[in-house]
């Protein structure tokens, strides 16, 4: 039995967001982290490993430095990593990305007892689309927004979050589950495993490695194969019209509420 976890390395947008002169993100100037929802997916897989002894495989698509993140996840307890990285895969939208990741998962192999985990969404794109689209491409049932997971044999019982409550769902393996960060508290890297993590297997799937997979077709991967394209990108103008009031005493407060009353806002 295997737990295959799809993870993404993202810029840390909680810190300083670096912008280039042309208005696009300067990713190289920003620190990177493992996407939060994806860490919850890794932890869910590791908990499954604690219970069942299953193999945990972490998979990421990204530039070569993402290997460092995969090593860290191995130091948390994952057994091996797969980095999907090739120039041909660059510029992919969610459709093309899920096509490529699904091909890689297919190459790893999904057996009857296996579970594929993804984080709900990545903080850089915030689309939440890649998980369900991988499931569709692999023909697997999906459960998204998982906030609690219980596995008994080949049956999973999952609490799926709704805005106004939740659903209790059951599904048989193999299936794909997307996790929210509220699911668990990811464990820290283990000192012993940190020392071992560079000895564990980490495969690189480049274009050559995946090109014979049925899902890989030049028409469905990379920039050319992406159904969506950027038409324009722009920065919102700075508002900069804030009226700063002097002081912070009752007089200042009365001045403000006076303005609001004059404008009939209150």
């Amino acid at each position: 039995m295997k737990a295959i976890v799809c993870v993404k390395q993202v810029p840390d947008t909680s810190g300083v967001v670096a912008v280039k002169a042309d208005g696009t993100m300067d990713r190289a100037a920003m620190a990177t982290i493992t996407n939060h929802d994806d860490l919850a997916a890794v932890e869910a897989a590791l908990e499954l490993k604690d219970k069942t002894g299953c193999e945990v495989i972490v998979v990421s698509m990204g530039p070569p430095p993402a290997e460092g993140m995969l090593r860290e996840l191995i130091a948390m307890g994952a057994d091996r990593g797969v980095l999907i990285s090739a120039r041909e895969f660059g510029g992919s939208d969610t459709y093309a990305t899920s096509q490529i990741i699904a091909a890689a998962v297919n190459k790893i192999g999904v057996d009857k007892e296996d579970v594929v985990f993804c984080g709900r969404q990545a903080i850089d794109g915030d689309t939440a689309q890649v998980g369900p689209q991988i499931a569709e491409k692999l023909g697997l049932p999906q459960v998204t927004y998982a906030a609690d997971i219980d596995k008994d044999g080949d049956k999973l019982t999952i609490k799926r979050l709704l805005e106004d409550g939740h659903m209790m769902l059951s599904v048989e393996t193999p299936c794909l589950v997307t996790t929210v960060k509220e699911l668990n508290n990811p464990r820290y890297m283990n000192v012993g495993l940190i020392q071992e993590c560079f000895d564990k297997p980490l495969d690189i799937f480049d274009y050559e490695a995946l090109k014979d997979e049925p899902l890989i077709d030049p028409d469905t991967i990379g920039l050319e194969g992406s159904p969506t394209n950027v038409y324009k990108s722009f920065s919102p103008p700075a508002k900069g019209a804030c009226q700063m009031l002097e002081g912070s005493d009752r007089g200042t407060v009365d001045e403000l509420t006076g303005i609001l009353a004059d404008k009939h806002l209150i």
Binding site: T94, Q133, T144
Partner: peptide, 23 residues
Amino acid sequence: ATNIGRDLAPRCAARLHTGLTAD
């Protein structure tokens, strides 16, 4: 873009082979 719409729309787009833009 509810917890249901964001589950359904990507699956449909992948099946129909078309693009989807979130949020």
